[in-house]
Simulated scan of single mutants.
Amino acid sequence: MAYKRNPSGRLTHFLAIPLSTDAIEQSLSLFRDEIIKHHPNVPVKAIRPPSTVHLTIAVMSLGEGRNSRLDEAKMRLIQLPSSIIPASTLEVGLKGIETFSDANPERAHVLFASLIGADVPRLQVFADKTLEYFYNCGFPVQLKNGATNKVVLHATIVNTIYAKTKNDQFDANQARAKTLGQRKNMTFRPNINASDLIAKYADFEFLSPTKLTRIGLYKMGEKSAEEGGGYECVAYLDLP
């Protein structure tokens, strides 16, 4: 049966496996240089910093104040049942550039790297079981693939939400927004024609199979550069 619960409040936290490593930093630096030189249609601001690269397991609305379930979520993660935790080390890597199956690659907003390595099936089982566990504990999780109850494992490399701009280069939908009386200088999220990128970087390896060290509960909202970037981890569980 497909999960049906979705959070009704503001999304506050997410469960994820961090992938920030020296290797990721080097490969993203190379990818960024390639984009600047050969793909001016891709906003540089949309390329994610190495400190933010992760595999999302679940996004949740844990409430605030007296209604907050943060402490419970932290406890559930730290005390994750042994039947869910992998019995041995998981090693996965990242390769290529893709868009989500329901997205038009000629008007993409998000580009991600896919997982590679012999342990990907085991990681998928771990992710699915973790999502199911938090759902069964009553947490309001946001589901993107409720038809199959499977976590869509991916590592976001480019996201144009971080490259919103004010300009006069409107597409058809944005032009309609102007006619509805909205301001000319509103910020708009740019689209990327990623067809060439997907083909060109199909074999680009962002990360060779590497040991996954932990799963964490993170606060929504990226930290500033002064704070070290990335996301604030409020609880974590070391993996074998």
Rank of each mutant, 00 (worst) to 15 (best):
I17R: 05
E205K: 12
P81E: 01
R48S: 08
P40S: 07
E34I: 02
D71R: 08
F126R: 11
T187F: 12
N193H: 11
V42P: 05
D119M: 01
C137H: 09
N104Q: 09
V110M: 05
A2R: 11
P50S: 13
T56W: 10
R107Q: 10
P43N: 05
A87F: 07
P7T: 01
K164R: 14
E226V: 12
R214V: 02
A172N: 02
L94V: 01
F204R: 05
A177H: 13
I84P: 14
S68T: 12
G216C: 12
S61M: 07
I192D: 01
L70N: 02
V151T: 08
A175R: 10
V53H: 09
Q124Y: 04
K184F: 15
L123I: 09
V158P: 07
Y133G: 08
G216Y: 11
V120A: 09
G230P: 01
V158I: 15
N167K: 06
P81L: 11
A172T: 00
L115P: 11
A202L: 13
V44W: 01
V125P: 14
Y201S: 08
T99W: 14
T213F: 03
E132D: 15
G96L: 07
P190S: 00
I192L: 10
H13E: 05
K166L: 05
P81W: 13
N136I: 02
M186F: 12
K164Q: 14
I36W: 00
H54P: 14
G228K: 05
H13W: 08
M75Y: 03
Q124R: 05
L115D: 09
K178E: 09
V151P: 01
L94C: 08
T21W: 13
Y133D: 06
F204H: 03
K45Q: 15
L123W: 12
A175F: 14
G228C: 06
R32C: 07
